[in-house]
Each structure stands twice: as C-alpha cells, then as structure tokens.
C-alpha cells in the first residue's frame, strides 16, 4: 500500500495504520475501498467469521474509546476511521449490500430502480395490482366474506413472491462464484474484462428484479396487514 507522510511527525509512514515513529493513528486513505480496508480482494464469497475477526481487530485500532485521552487531531482521525470501518463492515457483512457495492466500484453504476415488473412476472403482477386495488376499495365492515377471500389470495401471492425472491438470491449466489473465479484467473486482461462486465450486468439485472419483488411483497404486507 502506497503510504504518505505522517501528519504529525512528517516521517514516512511504515506501519499500516499507525506511524512507526510517533505511533499516532493515520487517517485512512481517501482511495481505500471497503474490500481493501479489510485486506480482501474484490471477491463476493466472504468468510463471515474471518470478516468479524478483522472487524474486531480494526475496531481495537480505531475506536474513539481508545483515543479519549489523546489530542483533538487524533480524536478526529479515530472518529473518521471508525465511521468508515463501521460502514465497510455493515456493507460487506450483508451479501446483497456487498454485491451492490462491488457493482458500484467495478461498473460505477448507480442502483437502477425499475418501474416495470420483470418480463416473466408481468401478467401475474398486473393481476396482483388489480386485486390490491379491489381489496383497498372494500370497506372493512361490509363484504366481509369477499374481503376475507381476497385477503387469503393476496397472502398466498405474497408467499409466492417470497419464493421467487429466494430463487433470485440463489441465482445470485451462483453468479458470486462465477465472479470470484474470473477474479482469480489470470487470463488475457481485455477478454477477462469483457466476461466480468457480463457477470456484473447479469447480477445487476437479478438485483433490480429482486428489489422490485421485495417492494411488491412489502406493499402486499402493508395492504393486507
């Protein structure tokens, strides 16, 4: 890791996070990404135990509790580093946030939120939306049998959507392996880039479908109570 001068004693920083000369904590580099912060490559399969171990170790290095008696500059650095570390851990710990972050890093793409349902679910979703409309229209006192039946149907639909969501997450996991394999191969760089972009795009597609389904399931839950 390319290192700069210590903000305090101006000597070259040889240690990883602390200056070798004056032992002051150093601000994390602005270029550092979450994976690098945890000394990980940009891989999607992460050992949760190992991640937690590193997180605890780095927390012991950066947490403001250990800088309470230090001067203001060190306190500020510890606060900033600690906030960054916590965001990094939260993002990498969750498989969905992890892949979203990777796509942002690799493709620079912002999360695209789709307004149309996934093609294979188009008709099902359309019917679902109509049913929800009808359900909302029925007052809770009258039409109790019709309402109860419709509610049951909507709840069944929600179960179905959740199954779909699980399938998508499984599909996503296979893509994680594809990605990691490509990352570990030392093939022709331009060809590898092409393949990687393909995997990134398909992961992004699955992600946005998944988001759509999640929102739909939540809306169903809110409607039926």
């Amino acid at each position: 890791m390319a290192r700069s001068m210590c903000w305090h004693c101006q000597s070259e920083v040889t240690g990883e996070y602390l200056c070798g000369q004056c032992v002051k904590v150093q601000p994390l580099s602005k270029e550092l990404d979450y994976f690098a912060c945890f000394k990980l490559g940009r891989l999607l399969n992460i050992d949760a135990q190992e991640l937690e171990r590193t997180y605890y170790e780095l927390s012991r290095t950066f947490h403001p509790d250990f800088y309470s008696t230090k001067d203001e500059s060190e306190k500020t650095i510890s606060l900033g580093n600690s906030a960054f570390l916590n965001s990094a851990y939260r993002t990498l710990k969750d498989p969905i946030q992890r892949v979203e972050y990777l796509i942002r890093l690799e493709a620079g793409a912002v999360k695209d939120i789709r307004s149309n349902p996934p093609a294979d679910l188009f008709e099902e979703i359309l019917e679902l939306q109509e049913d929800m409309e009808t359900f909302r229209g029925l007052s809770s006192e009258k039409d109790s049998t019709e309402r109860a039946e419709l509610r049951q149907k909507l709840q069944r639909e929600r179960g179905h959507l959740e199954e779909r969501q699980e399938e998508m997450e499984k599909a996503l996991l296979t893509k994680y392996h594809e990605w990691d394999q490509l990352q570990n191969q030392h093939a022709d760089p331009s060809k590898a880039r092409e393949q990687k972009d393909l995997v990134l795009r398909s992961m992004q597609e699955i992600l946005s479908n998944r988001t759509y389904i999640c929102n739909m399931a939540n809306e169903l839950l809110e409607t039926t109570g």
Partner: peptide, 16 residues
C-alpha cells in the same frame, strides 16, 4: 467500567 476504558486503564474491553 466505561470510564475506566476511556481513561486508558482497560484495553481488553471494547463496546460497539
């Protein structure tokens, strides 16, 4: 206990 940690007397415990 937390005061002790902040005072630099206890490096074993960390609260997140």
């Amino acid at each position: 206990v937390q005061a002790d940690i902040l005072g630099g007397h206890n490096k074993e415990i960390l609260l997140l």
